[in-house]
Write a protein that binds this DNA or RNA. Structure first.
Lengths: 252, 252
DNA sequence: ACGGTGTGTTGACACAGATCAAACCCCCCT
DNA sequence: AGGGGGGTTTGATCTGTGTCAACACACCGT
């Protein structure tokens, strides 16, 4: 009967439906039952294509919807009056954009596509209405927001206490892990962002990023060729993260 | 009639009730109607006293509840394996603690009282149940979480791109603004945290914090005496924030 | 195939903030 | 009242990362 219903849906709707999406295990509806999944198929009525370099939204624009990355790659950034910028995150397929906008009903950063991308539009008022019917969706949404807070606090740790090598090691391992979750190789991937954008995210200058990557290559941890990264020695990278030299000298 | 009803409530309940709390305009129930406020009076069944230096919760402990600071002052911190720590925030009356725990159902940081404090315990499962009945509460909760995300991204900006003086200026202005919202003087307050904790929050060493505060004093921006701060020239502090020297030289 | 432009690499040097060290202050405890 | 200890200030020096600069590479459109 469910299959009969979907069969008569217009093709367009079928294509859009969360229940048919191969990202459903990564995206907002993760953990929903088949029934619940079917219930939210009408939530996404709209997709948006964003070309590389274009913005999905900009600081100050009214907030109306969250966006789930369907394909492509984004960065979010905040700008200071004098032009200095901080990249606050990189978002890939299945990840949510726009959470920053709920609080003030205005977006609090720029979201910019780093490659041609497509997003599902989740009108937030609709979403909150669904929460009343589907407690699991509400609960999962709270988890997503909470994890975003924890992720941000991890970035604070990066920026506040780690040295350049540790930041880069953490960054590469994080990317590797997220690519893996999406079915790509953990050992090999292409960076979608420039050295400057990596630096801005990690609180470093692009020259430092470049130098540290070169050093990692000399040490046999990775191979770098432009945007292509091959992780040779993941354990070695993890060691960079956990082992400050003076600490191991003193204690280990 | 409302006064009659509250009069017959047990004294304990009266003391606990959100509708009677003088923080209701700052805390989670902000913006609720009187009716809605009455509805959540039973949410908080428990208060906890935390002595100075004690923890409200620690990393890894199971998450069951959010906490609203009733009186006192907290810090949240995350620790690296080698002992380095990052203070991720300071929380004062009316602010919420524990949002970090929702995602993984375990707390992701330590919350430590910087003075003898009292918190209202908001069992999270109960809270989510209230959301179904009170849409405004649900919506406001989402705003609170979103603002926490935006706050964290502001800290990333601090840590990623600002110089030491800018970080301290932003920190002092932020404290001043939050004290003001609580009815205290914008110009004069006591720091509840040590130089070391300020430094950890701002990604600086305590000596640097001390030096910058001394410099601000020499420049007539503030007066510092131990933990007591008097802001003499708020506009001057704001200028420290917005005006990078080389930028104003080039463009101003 | 060929410049042009955006991006990345590498080197030399500078500097903000870290580190090390000493003294000081304030408050609390006995 | 005196002593102790945590917290703070200040000075001298060191260092990791920034800054400036020159060049190399890659990809684009023509």
């Amino acid at each position: 009967m469910a299959s009969h219903l979907t069969a008569v849906k217009p093709l367009a709707a079928l294509r859009e439906a969360c229940s048919q999406c191969n990202l459903r295990e990564l995206c907002l509806p993760v953990g929903l039952s088949a029934d619940e999944l079917g219930q939210i198929d009408e939530l996404v009525k709209l997709r948006r294509r964003i070309l590389r370099g274009q913005s999905l939204y900009r600081t100050g624009e009214p907030f109306t919807a969250l966006y789930a990355v369907k394909t492509g790659f984004f960065k979010t950034e905040i700008l200071l009056a004098d032009g200095r910028e901080q990249v606050t995150g990189f978002q890939m397929a299945g990840e949510l954009l726009g959470l920053d906008g709920i609080g003030m009903e205005k977006h609090a950063c720029n979201a910019i596509a780093l490659e041609d991308s497509e997003v599902c539009v989740l009108p937030f008022a609709d979403l909150e209405r669904y929460f009343h019917e589907i407690a699991a969706l509400q609960h999962h949404f709270h988890k997503v927001m909470s994890r975003e807070i924890v992720r941000d606090q991890g970035v604070m740790m990066l920026l506040g206490v780690m040295r350049a090598e540790e930041r880069l090691a953490a960054f590469l391992l994080n990317l590797s892990q997220r690519f893996t979750a999406r079915g790509y190789s953990p050992h090999e991937f292409n960076l979608r962002m420039t050295r400057n954008e990596i630096g801005s995210y990690l609180g470093l200058k692009l020259e430092t990023v470049s130098r540290v990557l070169s050093r990692f290559q000399e040490e046999g941890l990775i191979q770098v060729h432009q945007k292509h990264i091959r992780i040779i020695d993941p354990a070695g990278l993890k060691k960079v993260l956990s082992a400050r030299q003076d600490f191991t000298e003193r204690h280990g």
